[in-house]
Design a protein around this nucleic acid. Structure first.
Lengths: 336, 336
DNA sequence: CTCATTCATGCAACCGATTGCATTTTGCTT
DNA sequence: AAGCAAAATGCAATCGGTTGCATGAATGAG
């Protein structure tokens, strides 16, 4: 392994000081254009690469942003990450990504790792059983910005980026009502998580406004198995629902499959609405009515506001919560 | 922002030298047990966190492993990543992940970024239009290990981790033959990529052995749209296939949907086999026969061999290619 | 032609952990 | 009590880039 080229090597070759070389490479205004050209040319020529560690050590920042998500393997998350990556690259930051796998324990470990690697800021979507933000305390103490997205918890030190889940749940329910459905059911996720609790709340609110019962609510993990279980549950009901709102497309899809096997016609017997506009929504039969969620945009906005926070004025964060728009997409699973 | 605690602070407090503190925290054998206890206690107490940058700078290594994948949003990739993360954590390394989005251009940029952040090793699954490994030259020159997985290209400096795709394609075809199918079709991906080229090769080989024609082959990107296009293509064939092998579950699923709409019965008119055992395989109707791919295991093995390479003897890598087992999972899409 | 500015560059002290070698301390042995 | 090996600790240089301040050079005004 040959030795690395350093600014000292460049300086020696060009009979300049390391300080000048450093400044030139950083495009510092005090360096003349000619010298800059010389230096960048030499650097290129010699195969110089800046030593991030030395730089980070001296500047006391890492130019790295951490992301913690519940799982990487959701279509939604990957669009969010794509959005983040785009913005973060443009701003010359790096990303380190980790997944909590829906466990607070792992989330805490991730937070600690992130803290120890001295990231400049953190973007988090909470695990399903996270109760409070106490494990982020070290970040708050050091005034390292933490931005929550999608699955959030209110906190004075955190900006949250969300959609209006209450409204989305409301929209889903109203859509079913407009299809003439009377007996509604909802399959939801952990009620500790704002997203699920709020969707349920909106759902109930809409039903109440239309004088409909809201007693059919199942809470689970929104997995494939939960979809099957929901179908089995429906099957043994004396009076099964005719409208079903599931807080996740994948779960909705597996539920639809089981319902069809059990002899229910979709949408005639039961109209179904999912959530997220996951690719699976277009593959399942009939195609799934769902709520489109602006993942890429959410990622971009989260990253953007973190970076502007980092480079600019903390007081900019007048907005403690940013709400994005969602959209109901109507497909065959809820209309003839 | 209060100042950070350093080993100097600990040393001063305990009237020891920074060297001793550093060694104690690293559990160096030359430090007495008592002193170690004192030091770790003090470190804990004072809220010390090691400065990775200083350490990396001094030790000339980052303890970080880079991963480049075509896309994050596939169920398969996320199981691979989960496997990697597990191993890498245990070995006290960090991960940085980036996606090439199936473009060589982006892949090259990612490689450069990885190189500049001085990762200790690289794990890569190639983008669909990568022709050669020339952009990895800097890594080869510096003898930084590069391990390819899943989508590989042969190279003397790289270990590859793969499944036997020829055999998998062969297995899929033989399975269809055993179901009594005579007219086979295959939907594949970029033939630049070993995985797709090899599956096709195995498929053809099996057909040849059974004296069947192999003229029905479609090459695309294995997207949803490609699935729909394949169905449209089949529909206008004078003599449509009765056996279909698609090199990706998601694409197979969308194709099945379109075929059913076009009036084909699955599996009676056309028996379908997918690839990967993606979750969607269990949601589509009928459930999809497919090839299970040991993603988690592949991630673990890739990470494992990289780490052992890093900490041990490079000659250990006598194996230039590691082949994992796959498995045909038979479900309703190919059998009555 | 002189003196005051502006512009460009250099000096040197960091940032915090690591490690080869030197030195001290400890524990035994005789 | 002296001698000595082994065990424990300290010294000081090093990794490479950054930045406040000082210095030297060039430019312009009077």
């Amino acid at each position: 392994m040959e030795k690395e080229v350093t600014i000292y090597d460049i300086a020696r070759l060009l009979k300049l000081s390391p300080a000048t070389v450093s400044r030139a490479l950083k495009d510092h205004p005090a360096i003349s254009a000619g010298t800059k050209r010389l230096i960048t040319a030499a650097a290129e020529e010699m195969g110089y690469r800046s030593n991030t560690f030395a730089s980070n050590l001296r500047r006391q920042r890492s130019n790295t942003i951490g992301v913690i998500v519940p799982r990487l393997d959701s279509a939604f998350m990957s669009t969010v990450l794509a959005g983040m990556e785009k913005i973060v690259n443009e701003g010359n930051y790096n990303l380190i990504i980790s997944q909590s796998l829906e466990s607070v324990r792992k989330e805490k470990a991730n937070v600690k790792t992130m803290f120890d690697s001295r990231i400049d800021g953190l973007l988090v979507s909470l695990s399903s059983d996270t109760d409070d933000l106490s494990h982020f305390q070290p970040f708050f103490q050091k005034e390292i910005p933490v931005i929550l997205f999608d699955r959030v918890l209110p906190h004075p030190n955190c900006t949250s980026i969300v959609i209006d889940n209450v409204r989305a749940g409301y929209d889903a329910a109203v859509h079913l009502v407009r299809q003439g459905r009377k007996r509604m059911m909802h399959v939801s996720g952990s009620q500790k998580r704002n997203v699920y609790e709020e969707r349920l709340r909106g759902f109930r609110q809409a039903l109440a406004e239309h004088g409909l019962a809201d007693d059919l609510v199942l809470v689970g993990n929104l997995t494939r198995q939960d979809g099957l279980d929901a179908a089995r549950y429906i099957r043994q009901l004396p009076q099964p629902p005719d409208g079903l709102f599931v807080a996740s497309d994948f779960c909705a899809a597996s539920c639809i499959g089981a319902l069809k096997e059990a002899g229910f016609a979709i949408p005639n017997d039961i109209a179904v609405v999912g959530f997220n506009d996951d690719p699976v929504a277009q593959v399942v039969e009939p195609r799934l009515t769902t709520i489109r969620y602006p993942g890429q945009e959410m990622g971009e906005i989260a990253a953007q506001s973190l970076i502007s926070h980092l480079s600019g004025q903390p007081p900019v964060t007048a907005a403690n919560t940013i709400v994005l728009n969602h959209e109901l997409i109507v497909r065959g699973s809820s209309t003839p």
